[in-house]
């Protein structure tokens, strides 16, 4: 008796199998693939600081960035628009995982070069991995002539930055990044200034729709420069994307756009109105 029941059971089950929807068959046959999470951030910058995103191999990106003066300087300075710091840069994908960039900022006539390497990717599916890790290293050289009596050598004009970028795309509209940062300056203004400064950056992106996102970034420092009234960098931005362009409108308490600058040399009190309006315009070729 048991046997008969078993046979009937199996037969009905098999008949159901054969009546199975063709799309379900395809679903079962779909090979499990590694699914790399892409577009954690729209651009290679969250606001001022780098995101884990790289340019792909042989892609060239040209970025023009601007930061105006402080908005609370009032009407005479036209709310900061009379003053501006500009940075031009070319950033190029040497491989899919390695990007190199060269830039020049008008502020202190600073040249900078960087390398960014994508070490680990966030993955879904087989071999899933919960977050992405990139490594960033840059050198900046200040070329503005020093005032008489304060001359410095080329080596004394150099700054080094190392960052580990750890990011997670929670879902298609929300991404986070944590960025442990190390900044070294060869020359300090006074003896009390540290040569090495450590900071921990926090960044996020919230997508408002398919092409517009709201970004925020905060870089608290563990130790600060003593020669200036150093503040932690805080910035907000809106990313607007069309085709090969990304346009970012930025509010930041820093006038500089490179790591050694905005992380360690910001003096603006954001909530006191020391806000710099800025733009990043990027075009990918």
């Amino acid at each position: 008796m048991k046997k008969i029941i078993a046979i009937i059971f199996v037969l009905t089950f098999s008949i159901q199998l054969s009546a199975q929807d063709l799309l379900d068959v395809l679903n079962n046959e779909t090979p499990e693939t590694e699914n790399i999470v892409t577009a954690t951030f729209k651009g290679t910058r969250i606001v001022n600081g780098h995101s884990i995103e790289n340019r792909k191999k042989k892609e060239l990106e040209f970025i023009i960035s601007h930061r105006f003066g402080r908005v609370n300087t009032g009407f005479e300075e036209f709310f900061g628009l009379d003053q501006s710091n500009i940075r031009f840069s070319f950033e190029y994908g040497l491989t899919d995982n390695l990007t190199a960039g060269l830039g020049r900022s008008s502020f202190e006539k600073t040249y900078d070069g960087y390398l960014k390497y994508s070490l680990l990717k966030q993955k879904k599916g087989t071999n899933s991995f919960p977050f992405a890790v990139s490594l960033f290293g840059s050198i900046a050289a200040k070329s503005q002539k020093a005032v008489a009596g304060n001359e410095r050598s080329f080596a004394e004009s150099l700054f080094y930055v190392g960052q580990v970028l750890i990011a997670k795309k929670v879902n298609s509209s929300l991404s986070f990044q944590i960025t442990p940062t190390y900044v070294h300056r060869n020359l300090t203004a006074i003896n009390a200034d540290p040569h090495d400064i450590f900071a921990l950056g926090f960044g996020t992106r919230v997508k408002l729709n398919k092409r517009v996102s709201l970004n925020a970034e905060f870089y608290p420092q563990f130790n600060k420069l003593e020669s200036i009234d150093a503040k932690n960098s805080l910035a907000f931005g809106v990313d607007i994307e069309t085709g090969g362009h990304v346009f970012q409108i930025i509010l930041s308490n820093a006038i500089t756009m490179i790591e050694k600058g905005f992380i360690t040399e910001s003096t603006g009190n954001f909530f006191g109105g020391d806000i710099h309006l800025g733009f990043n315009l990027s075009r990918t070729f």
């Binding site: 068959v25 395809l26 577009a39 792909k56 892609e59 899919d96 994307e241």
Partner: peptide
């Protein structure tokens, strides 16, 4: 007949196009 197409498996000449295709 039934067909299933994984959208992320579409390959473009430019990586940025592929990203925009999938994202936007």
């Amino acid at each position: 007949m039934a067909i299933a197409i994984l959208m992320k498996s579409f390959m473009f000449k430019k990586a940025l196009m592929q990203e925009h295709f999938n994202e936007n």
